[in-house]
Design a protein around this nucleic acid. Structure first.
Ligand SMILES: [Mn+2]
Ligand SMILES: [Mn+2]
Ligand SMILES: [Zn+2]
Ligand SMILES: [Zn+2]
Lengths: 140, 140
DNA sequence: AATATAAATGCTACACAATTGCATTAATAA
DNA sequence: TTATTAATGCAATTGTGTAGCATTTATATT
């Protein structure tokens, strides 16, 4: 409570304030996890990392709030259960996600954009998501 | 039971026999639904169409059998719950799926192939799935 | 046609992800 | 400091899918 605030904490507070979200410890800790992760994380990852400090519904509601505000985005890698990652500048455009068959982590590839495809007559494209499976750079 | 067999039923029987699956009424009816559908269908679609003639586990197991044999393929359109479609000749290659925001049906686009993407160094691609959202040709 | 065998089915229970209503508590504004 | 509003915890509930096991059925064999 009285310890000097780390820059990271300041960043998180600003992020919350800029989206008009109250600064609660659940949000601070969950957002901190998300910001510090190189890959997408699930409810279970959060639950494991934070113990049972927060109720399941709080965690899910927190993730939903972040997503509504655009702070994070959801990734469905087909393993049942949604994963999330912070949306960084380069990743605002629709980017590819990569699921490693070996370590089963799912990564944002913010610089790998989804190519345009031409749908058949009558199909109007709004947006698209591309999931790649394979071996990630840490496993190959 | 004694009515003349329709050609469609013969097709279905042959399909089952060619994959060494026993001809049961669950399989006949579920495969008939799948063959007759222009879009992917879910467990719930099957359950609605067939009433409670078949147990939930039978339906799921039937779908899993069909998928293992390659008769159908699974599509995850992010709505929670897997959908299935018969794999037709043109669709054996990885093709795009289209989820309509209006009618919320999900379609195979067997002629729209998934473009190759170049992943960052170290990421080895095995396969990929591309889901497009928008308005389908029946809704536009 | 009767029988044997292996597979499919129905039932029940369970697993897991996620959501909801509601009373309580905490964060911010005034 | 108080009032207001939003967030939280808890318990129950929903939704999707799986699993064990006794029973039934499809098919091959006699
Ligand atoms: Mn991403
Ligand atoms: Mn398809
Ligand atoms: Zn990996
Ligand atoms: Zn439509």
């Amino acid at each position: 409570m009285s310890a000097a605030m780390t820059p990271v904490n300041k960043d998180i507070e600003n992020l919350l304030r800029s989206h008009r979200l109250k600064r609660t410890s659940a949000r601070m800790e969950i957002l901190s996890l998300l910001l510090g992760s190189s890959h997408t994380i699930s409810y279970n990852d959060i639950s494991d990392a934070l113990g049972d400090n927060f109720d399941k519904s709080t965690v899910y509601r927190t993730l939903n709030s972040f997503e509504e505000k655009g702070i994070i985005h959801a990734v469905n890698d087909g393993t049942g259960g949604i994963k999330y990652a912070v949306t960084r500048e380069e990743g605002r455009e629709a980017h590819v996600h990569f699921k490693c068959d070996n370590c089963s982590q799912t990564y944002c590839l913010p610089d790998t954009k989804i190519p345009n495809v031409k749908a058949p007559r009558g199909f109007v494209i709004k947006n698209s998501s591309l999931l790649i499976n394979g071996t990630c750079k840490y496993c190959s």
